[in-house]
Every structure is written in C-alpha cells, then in structure tokens.
Write a protein that binds this DNA or RNA. Structure first.
Lengths: 151, 151
DNA sequence: TGCAACAGTGGACGCGGTCGACCGCACCCT
DNA sequence: AGGGTGCGGTCGACCGCGTCCACTGTTGCA
C-alpha cells in the first residue's frame, strides 16, 4: 500500500470504470503491473467491489430517513440485527453507543412508505421504540474523503 | 425506464465494471443497444457515476460516527452548509427535520481524530452544539435496496 | 559471489467497445 | 389508406484494451 496504490484507489473511487490503460498512464507504469496491483488491492480487501452510483430519487425513492432503534431490556442483539437485515429498505445499519442501539438509514418512496417501514420495525421482537429523523434534503452523500497519508 | 433498464441498473449496481457484452447477454440485446440505454440512463441522471467500493478501515479510517448539529438562533443555513462542506472528513450530510438541523456521517482514524473533527465543527459560525453518536460496528453500509416496480 | 524472489516490461493474441449504415416498427398527419 | 418521420435495434468492421507469457532488472540473503 504505497503511494502508487493510493493513487490507484483514488482514481477508481472517482471513476470505477477507468480502464487499466488509463490508470497505467496515470501512474506511469505498464498495464500488466497496474492489473497486478489492483488484483492485490482487491484480494487484500481494500477494494471490495465496483458499484454504479444511482440517484435514488430517480428510482422513485425520494424519502431518506435516519431511524434510531431502542431495544427492550433482554433483547438479543444478534437476533435483532438479523431481523433488521430482512427489511430491504434499510440501506445502512450501524450498531451505536448511546441510548439507541442501532441507527438505520432507510429509503422510501413517500411518507406513507416510510410509515410502513417504521411500523414493521416496531413489530420486530426486541425493538422497544424507534425514533425517526427525516432528511429534508441531502446536501451530499458518499463523498470521497481523502486517504490518510500513513497506514 | 422499462424493465430492461431496471435490470441494467441492478446489474451495474452489483458490478460497476460489468462489460457491455455481459450486460447485452444478460438482457438479450445487442451490445450497441445496451450502450445506448446506459448512455441514456447516465444522461437522465439515473446513473450518476461509477465508484470503487473501498473498505475505510483498510485505509486507516476505522472510526465512523454520526454527528447531529444544532444551530444557534439566526444562523444562516446555507452558510453553515458551505462551511460544513469544507470539512473533508464528512462523508454524508443531510439537512433534517427536528431539533438538530444537520446530521453528518464522518470517518476518522481514531477517537483522537474524531475529537478534532468535533472541535472543528463546534467552532463553525452558527453551530451552537453537536451531539455525537459513535458507531461501534457497521452491520452493513450502502446495501442495494430493491428498485420499486413503478416509476 | 551466486541464487532466489519479486516487481515490472514488452509482445502477441483474442475479445470488447465503438461507430456508421441499414432495418423495422409505431405514430402521426393529411 | 398512404407516406413521412423518428426511434430503437441489429449487423459488420476497425481500433484499442485486457490478458497471458517469457524475459529483465533489482534487492536481499546466504
């Protein structure tokens, strides 16, 4: 994971469909050696995949919300996490410190859809209460934050 | 935006480096027509780009936190948003309904790094207070949620 | 000094992306 | 009903890219 690798990762974060030839020109190496490095980055788990970035609102998912999940006493964390995974509208799920045990980011088509999701969450065994925060606008999402110099 | 387009979007969300030939075989069309459709999806703003998915912890960004930002009375929303944008560690920024005006998702290398970010946020003009929730573990992130049938 | 391991280079081959020309269909207007 | 138009798709050809393999140069170590 040297400077060349960091450059490659930056370039692929900006454009996941960059050709190996382009990347080779960018870092001043030959094509095969760039291929080697990227394969190694993938196998090391640095690059976990390549995704098309899609605007959810164009797919009819205009509502974004953050939902805090409070558990009942004696709830099984793993069990709740497993049941949360069955709710397809949850895009992100963090286990957090604080009064709330999980924070979820969900997408819905409209407020009615969001209400249905909240209802489903509340019916999960072990979930005591939810606290929903609606995003009125998304200033930005998934911005590329700089890679720290050291490892 | 018909069923074929949805299939293409799903496929490119799963693998952003899929070749047009693969996609053509998948949907049963010729290469050029798939290229046309994808170009149209890009120009329509459905597909906004292609990104390599990177595991932040392998880059030395092991700490994820959600930070709620409370504003002072008479704070200028746009001005605060602009100053938040200058903080590179903020990966997502939503303007939300509720006592907090913004919710941020930030990444830091360690708790000390997070403390520095919180300090910087608190010094932004118009920011009255912040409330930080640390993610102890990420159950999942950026999961592909299904595309609703209708548009 | 000699050997081994590793990273990179260069060339050759096959496949994929791209472009232009053509086709068929649906829609519309008269 | 007929003709025109535009759109979406196919086909074929050319160029460039990805991939594989053999070779090279360097570093580290015995």
């Amino acid at each position: 994971m040297d400077a060349v690798d960091r450059t490659l990762v930056e370039a692929l974060r900006a454009n996941g469909r960059a050709t190996y030839a382009e990347l080779a020109r960018l870092v001043g190496l030959s094509g095969p050696s760039v291929t080697d490095r990227i394969n190694r980055l993938e196998q090391a788990g640095v690059i976990t995949g390549y995704r098309a970035a899609v605007d959810p609102s164009t797919l009819g998912l205009g509502v974004t919300a953050l939902i805090g999940v409070l558990l009942s006493d004696a709830a099984d964390l793993d069990d709740v996490a497993r049941r949360l995974k069955d709710v397809p509208e949850i895009e992100d799920c963090w286990f957090v410190a604080g009064e709330e045990s999980f924070v979820l980011k969900v997408r819905a088509g409209d407020p009615v859809g969001l209400e249905k999701i909240i209802g489903r969450l509340g019916r999960i065994r072990g979930v005591a209460r939810t606290r929903t925060t609606i995003a009125l606008s998304t200033k930005w999402e998934a911005r590329q934050i700089p890679i720290p110099a050291e490892d």
